[in-house]
């Protein structure tokens, strides 16, 4: 747990808000992931992956500060996988790699674990 977590007053309130938002964000990430997987055009696939990446970026930025290190690191890894794909040689092909969907699936499962534990 970071120093920020242990020292800030009012952190519990922010953690609770984060978990509430996480429930909503995991659903959004799953929706983007499914839409990317089902997508038939490059634009459809990439825009949905970018949507998932933007939410992962937010989670990665704040989770660690609130004591959810594993969640933050997993979000960061997923984000970087998407960034690499979107900047890589397959970015202009209508391909959604199974590895990305698998990583998003694992991340959503981890989110559920965290939200269930605190609900």
């Amino acid at each position: 747990m970071t120093k920020l977590m242990t020292e800030l007053p009012g952190i519990e309130r922010i953690r609770t808000r984060f978990i509430e938002m996480l429930a909503e964000r995991q659903t959004q990430i799953a929706s983007y992931g499914l839409a990317a997987w089902d997508g038939e055009t490059v634009e459809e696939i990439n825009s949905n992956l970018a949507g998932a990446q933007a939410i992962l970026h937010q989670i990665a930025g704040s989770a660690g500060s609130l004591g959810f290190e594993e969640l933050g690191q997993t979000a960061r890894n997923c984000e970087l996988q998407i960034v690499d794909h979107l900047a890589g040689p397959d970015a202009d092909l209508a391909i959604c790699p199974i590895e990305l969907i698998s990583a998003l699936d694992s991340f959503v499962a981890l989110c559920r674990k965290e939200t269930d534990a605190l609900s």
């Binding site: 020292e7 800030l8 930025g61 500060s65």
Partner: peptide, 8 residues
């Protein structure tokens, strides 16, 4: 990010 008090 994530922030740490000392650094911030």
């Amino acid at each position: 990010k994530p922030f740490e008090i000392a650094e911030l």
